Deep mutational scan, measured.
Amino acid sequence: MEVRTIKVFTTVDNINLHTQVVDMSMTYGQQFGPTYLDGADVTKIKPHNSHEGKTFYVLPNDDTLRVEAFEYYHTTDPSFLGRYMSALNHTKKWKYPQVNGLTSIKWADNNCYLATALLTLQQIELKFNPPALQDAYYRARAGEAANFCALILAYCNKTVGELGDVRETMSYLFQHANLDSCKRVLNVVCKTCGQQQTTLKGVEAVMYMGTLSYEQFKKGVQIPCTCGKQATKYLVQQESPFVMMSAPPAQYELKHGTFTCASEYTGNYQCGHYKHITSKETLYCIDGALLTKSSEYKGPITDVFYKENSYTTTIK
Rank of each mutant, 00 (worst) to 15 (best):
T198Q: 14
H48P: 12
S25L: 12
A108H: 05
L163N: 05
E239Q: 12
D165P: 03
A150C: 02
G39M: 09
S279W: 04
F32P: 06
M245Q: 00
Q98Y: 11
K183V: 10
V22H: 03
L212D: 05
L212Y: 00
A108P: 00
Q216A: 13
V203I: 15
R83D: 04
K275D: 00
L59S: 12
F305N: 00
F9R: 10
H90T: 11
G53K: 13
E308P: 10
T314S: 14
L153Y: 15
T292P: 00
G267E: 15
F305C: 01
A142I: 11
K127V: 11
I277C: 01
P224R: 15
D135G: 07
C149F: 05
S104E: 06
T116I: 05
L163K: 15
T226Y: 11
G228R: 03
Y138R: 13
H256V: 14
R167Q: 00
M24K: 10
P34R: 10
Q122S: 03
Y234F: 10
P97F: 09
T10E: 05
F70W: 11
T278Q: 09
S86G: 12
Y72D: 06
G164W: 06
E2P: 10
E264A: 12
Q31F: 13
L291T: 15
G33K: 02
E239T: 11
Q195W: 10
I301T: 01
R184F: 03
A69V: 08
Y155C: 04
Y265F: 15
N129D: 09
D13N: 14
T232K: 08
V3P: 14
G101F: 03
P47C: 06
T43I: 07
A115D: 03
G257A: 08
E264K: 00
Y155I: 06
Y234N: 03
A142H: 15
Y72R: 09
T35R: 06
A247V: 03
T258D: 14
A289M: 10
F148P: 02
T91I: 08
H90F: 14
G202Q: 01
V185P: 02
P78T: 10
Y269V: 15
L121Y: 02
E296S: 13
V166Y: 06
T198F: 14
S213E: 07
L254P: 01
A250S: 13
K233F: 08
A142S: 13
I152V: 11
A262D: 04
A205L: 01
H18T: 08
G257V: 04
P248G: 05
M207G: 01
L119Y: 03
D135Q: 10
T43C: 14
V188A: 05
V42W: 14
V12H: 08
T55R: 11
L235V: 10
I105C: 05
S50R: 11
E168T: 13
N111T: 04
N16H: 14
I286D: 02
S213R: 03
L118V: 08
V221G: 00
G299W: 00
G267N: 08
Q251E: 14
T314K: 15
V221Q: 07
H273T: 02
L235T: 02
L200H: 14
S86N: 13
E253W: 05
T292E: 12
L126G: 04
V166H: 07
P34H: 10
K191C: 13
G220Q: 03
L88E: 06
Y96A: 05
N309S: 13
I223A: 13
S295V: 15
Y214V: 10
G101S: 05
A142N: 12
Q222N: 11
L37R: 14
K307W: 03
K54E: 13
V58T: 10
H51R: 04
T258R: 09
V3L: 13
S213V: 05
T211K: 02
G39V: 08
L126A: 04
G257L: 05
A247S: 07
M85T: 06
N111I: 01
Y113S: 07
N110I: 02
T258E: 15
G82E: 15
G101Q: 06
M207E: 05
G257T: 02
V166D: 04
R66M: 14
E162H: 06
L88A: 05
L126R: 03
E296Q: 14
A87D: 02
A289E: 15
C156E: 04
G272M: 01
T116W: 05
